[in-house]
Design a protein around this nucleic acid. Sequence first.
DNA 1: CCGGACTCCTGGTTGC
DNA 2: TGCAACCAGGAGTCCG
Length: 300
Amino acid sequence: MPELPEVEVVRAGLEPAVDGATIERVTVLDERSLRRHAGPSEDFTARLTSARLAAPRRRGKFLWVPLDDLRDRLVLLVHLGMSGQVLLRTPDAPLDRLTRIVIDLAHPVHGALRVDFVDQRVFGSMALDELVPAPDVEDDTVPRQVAHIARDPIDPAFDDERFLASLRRRRTTVKRALLDQTLVSGIGNIYADEALWAARIHADQPTETLSRPRARLLLEEVRLVLAKALAEGGTSFDAQYVNVNGASGYFSHSLNAYGRGGEPCRRCGTAIVRVAFMNRSSHFCPRCQRVRGSRGSRVE
DNA sequence: CCGGACTCCTGGTTGC
DNA sequence: TGCAACCAGGAGTCCG
């Protein structure tokens, strides 16, 4: 579902349309899409109306648009959840059936625009939030709700050494660690499986038994997988993800592990296995990806 | 600190 | 054909 690459595609696509634009009107069609907003929807609409917007920013799977209003340090925060989409439309375009929030904009160059927040499963939401100092870097800010989220691996300020040290301190298994947004952000179930496949590491490998070179390799593969997805415009195997212009971005044909249960591993031909994991699924090659013990090896 | 269960939610798919 | 059960899982919370 939307992970870092998909959210970044949305951010980049939104930037020219919202940077410098003024909000003319906000229409909340479904209050559930404000689950991350502290106040009632009237508060959300009132404080956004007539605000001027700056360039959108992102950390992990969180996206925010700063209000060009230094007094309040307010931002429009967006999380796509499982099925959220941000669609950029002309004012007269028909509304998608699952549209939850509509924001009408006036842009000095592009004129009247409409930003539609569409979300089938309603796990995503918008909110008004306040910027607070980033806990790790001077002169950087993040929305309060994002302060506990770690930097993502393509953030220039991501600290590799710090990540490797925290990973080693964790007493957990490696896929859990990859999905833990307070350790490293932006990775969801799809890219976790892809990065582990690429690094030939089993999801259940305890983090404290991961050698430093293998941990480094994993981080490198995470970056490669994310960069590849980014270059291809994001993944969409079920057309849930749609970029800001409404066109599907996908590279599902490039997936090596995720969703390929029963199909041959592209490296060795062994059937990819799908197992239950944390109320979801893990996909891996049982031959390429084995749990390695400190001595000998245990499979599965 | 850690893992597991639970919550939010709906549409597409599967199974009877 | 019809309907119900099932599945997809990001993130927060709570509990043991």
